[in-house]
Structures are given as C-alpha cells and as structure tokens.
Nucleic acid binder design. Sequence first.
DNA 1: TCAAAAGTGTTTCTCGTACACCCATGT
DNA 2: ACATGGGTGTACGAGAAACACTTTTGA
Lengths: 255, 255
Amino acid sequence: MTKKKAQAEAAFLATYDPKDFPRPSVTVDLVILTITDADLKVLLVERGEHPFQGRLALPGGFVRVAEGQREQGEGLDEAAARELAEETGLEPGSVYLEQLAAFGAPLRDPRTRVISVAYFALVRPTLAPLVRAGGDARAARWVSVADAKDLAFDHDAILAAALARVKRELDASSVAFALVPETFSIQELRAVHEVVRGEALDPGNFRKRFLRMVEDGVIEPARGKRLTASKPASVYRFVQNRDRDRAATAPASRR
Amino acid sequence: MTKKKAQAEAAFLATYDPKDFPRPSVTVDLVILTITDADLKVLLVERGEHPFQGRLALPGGFVRVAEGQREQGEGLDEAAARELAEETGLEPGSVYLEQLAAFGAPLRDPRTRVISVAYFALVRPTLAPLVRAGGDARAARWVSVADAKDLAFDHDAILAAALARVKRELDASSVAFALVPETFSIQELRAVHEVVRGEALDPGNFRKRFLRMVEDGVIEPARGKRLTASKPASVYRFVQNRDRDRAATAPASRR
DNA sequence: TCAAAAGTGTTTCTCGTACACCCATGT
DNA sequence: ACATGGGTGTACGAGAAACACTTTTGA
C-alpha cells in the first residue's frame, strides 16, 4: 500500500518538469540579537501592511533570483548579509551572521507560498545604538525578547529556534564573543553568558574557565582597563584564526 | 556610502513585488545514512541526465507548491518525508529525519536557480537491506561515505555538513539510537559511536556511560540476548518520550 | 570608612581516560 | 585449552560547583 503509493509518486515525478509548476517565493528572515541593559534584545519591525498589519515581525526580504544560466542572482548568505546591512546600517563583517534553518510550512504566509531561510545575527552592544541611524525607512527597534510575543507569521517559532541555537552554541562556539565589545572584561563576558542562559553564574568559577581560555590561546590580554563601580578590571580580546596559531605554536594540550 | 546604498536598496524594496520577479525552484535533498559492515554508508543515486550525467548524487526532488490562499502544497518536512519514503520504500516513522540546512548558492545547479533544503535521515541497519526492494525506479544504492566523493552539484558539501552534524549530535541527542536495531547490545551502540567518530572507544569506559544512561532512564533493559563470538550480551531498548516519564517519576538526579 | 566588585584559594564531587583483570562461552 | 569478548574494578586528573576570603578601588 505504501509501495503502491510510492510507485504512483515515482510516475508523477518522472513527468514533473519544474518549469511547468508553481515555485515558491523565497525570503530571508533575520533574528538580530544584541544585549543592552543586561537584557537580550531582538530587532523587530512593525508591519505597515496586511497581513499582520501593525504587528511586530522579524526583518527580512526576498532573495534576489535570476533564472539565467550565467546569472542566477544572489546567494542565501549574500541575501542575508544585504538585508542585515539594509536593516542596521552596520558594516558587514562587524556583525556575526549564521544560517539558522529553513521554515516552509504551507500557509505560514496567507498571501502565497513563501519559504523562508532564517538567519541569526549577533550585534556588539557598542554597535547597537547606531542601528536606528543607519537603518532603512521601516522603523526597526530593539525589543526585549521577553516582550517579543505574538509576532507576525511564524516568527515566534523562528525567534524561539534562534534563542535555543544561541544558547546551545554558547559554550561550544565563539558566539559569546560577538555579544561583547572588541575588548572586554571577564565580568562582561560572564554577563553575556548569564543573560543568554538566564541564570546567575559564580564569578569565581567563571573566572577560572575564562583564564583557562586565556591559557589555551582562545583569549588574549588587551591593553587598558575597564572602569567599574569599584576596582578597574583587566580587558581581553578574542583571538580569531586561532586554529592557525595553535598549529604553529604546538598544541601543549593540558592532557 | 553604505548609507546611500542602503537607501537605494530601501527604495528598490518598496517597489519590489514578488509576483513580478523570478522565483527559484526549491528542492529537498536527502542525506540518508546507515551503518552496515562497521561502515557508515550513504544512499546515492546515479544521475541519468545532464547535468552531471553518470555522477552520483543525493536523492531529492522538488517541493510541491501551490500558490493559493487556501492550498499552498506540502511543507518542507512533509516533502522530505515523502522523498524519503519514495526513495527507500520504508515506513515513515521507522526512520529518523531532521532538517540539516538550506543550500542556495547561485549556479549550484547550472540549469536554473535552485535552492535546496537538505535533510539527513538515519536508517537502522536492520532496515537497510530492504531499501532497494521498495525504492523507486532510479537505482539507489548504499555507498561508503569514504568513497562518496565527486558528487553532483554541491552534494559533497551537503554530505560533509550532514556528517559533521551527526558527529556533533551523537553525544547530545538521540541520533545514535536511530542507527542500531530496536533492541541493541552495549557493543552495538558503541560500534555506532566508533564508526561515526572514526576512532576506537574503550569498552569498559563506554559501558559505564551506557549504564549511567540506563540509570537515568534513557535506556531500559529488554528481553533476550545478543549472540556474539563469545559470551552472549544483554540487549536494551531506547526509551522514547522520556521527558514525560522523567517528569512523572521525579528527577532523582544524581546530584 | 564602607560598599562593590576584582581577584584568590579550598574543598568536594563527578566524569573521562587509561588500564588491569576476571569470567562465561563457542570453537 | 584457549581465544574472544562480556563484564568489573581501580587510579589519576580535569573540571564543575559551592563558598569563604583578601585586595583594590570609587564614593
């Protein structure tokens, strides 16, 4: 019975020519995150038209596509980077950008079939205030993720997936360093972990983890001090291209 | 200058009506994995037509789309499940299926712009031999991932991403249990880890990890024994819906 | 001088790793 | 009898967690 069905599908496919059938619109949607005031914020735009008029939504736009054999338009990463620049006015490269997932349930857009490739972006808190200035016509604004409910389309689900992803990657990858200034104190990095994970961390224990990363060459000391409410703190810098460095300077693994 | 550009883009977008612009074809591509003969295998099809005629490729097909306001065709997960059933003839539900990522670089398909949403599927070794019987007309066959080179399109990259993903998720999620029979011995699960990670694991240490999972209720003993070259081994079963069970029976966390 | 946060140290527990060893079974 | 692999125990070190304590600064 499933076998019969499979054969019918196969027969269908054999005669299926994409040119003859409708194609979906494809968009990129962006979950642009930053941390200000010890709070995780997401950049949202208010929809001017139906559907979901007046509701908040993730910024996004259509992927520019051409059908040619030589020219086929922009890639997905390219489209996401372009939208990001349009929406924030920030230099590309100063913002961390990574693909999240594709969302393509039918009727997620009531007008027509739209498949969206979602990306998430992480903006340093030092750059966050500059966003509105450079942004495009639509009024984009930072909204606390705690308040980001009842978004348009399926954007609640996309946002939730992005938050889960960032939380998962916090310890494994370098995303945390995209949410602090170029140079940062131990406390500032700890604050990022605390805000993303939603719980307080022991300063002493975090410090030990941090210093271990320094020994491993993941982080290096930087010049200057960070002024605080009390004693000034040392600042550090994230070391990019650390794979090359590690290979060069011999592992020295703590094993 | 980026500001000027951003404004130009904004003006463009305001007049941008998706109906007026070309849309890409959207496909799902499947990385279907199994383990047989202590070797990780991927299901590939040989292409009958240009481009890449004669080359091996990941199975896949177009997402069926409608443009209506009521009917918009099938969802991405649905399309992937359908393709999986067509290609393997296996019951849906007996195979693990998860979205991997979207691949949409221009010119990845020389004919026209195609954006592909890739999925990976994990087939139990007990079901792997049944695949060719139920599959559709195209000759699908299991190929060792070590030999799966020079695939059509950008399928090398998709395969590599799938392997990296499975490797990453091995310890964190339940994917390992999708690569053993319904009931399995400790050794069988260890073999999965060894094949995926590509290195030998200490049998004694793995056993301890395994028994800890039994205590945590992730795995439960099953009836029967597995015959080996020597002493028969006990078999176990993966416990699904363990979140519900955990909530019901009180954590009893080993803390 | 006092509060706040940087920075240091200690103790305990768990886990991963390496490795030695016993035991049951089929050939 | 013996090799094979199941099953068990031990010892070491790294790291997570909890927590007490000292030091340096700004207000």
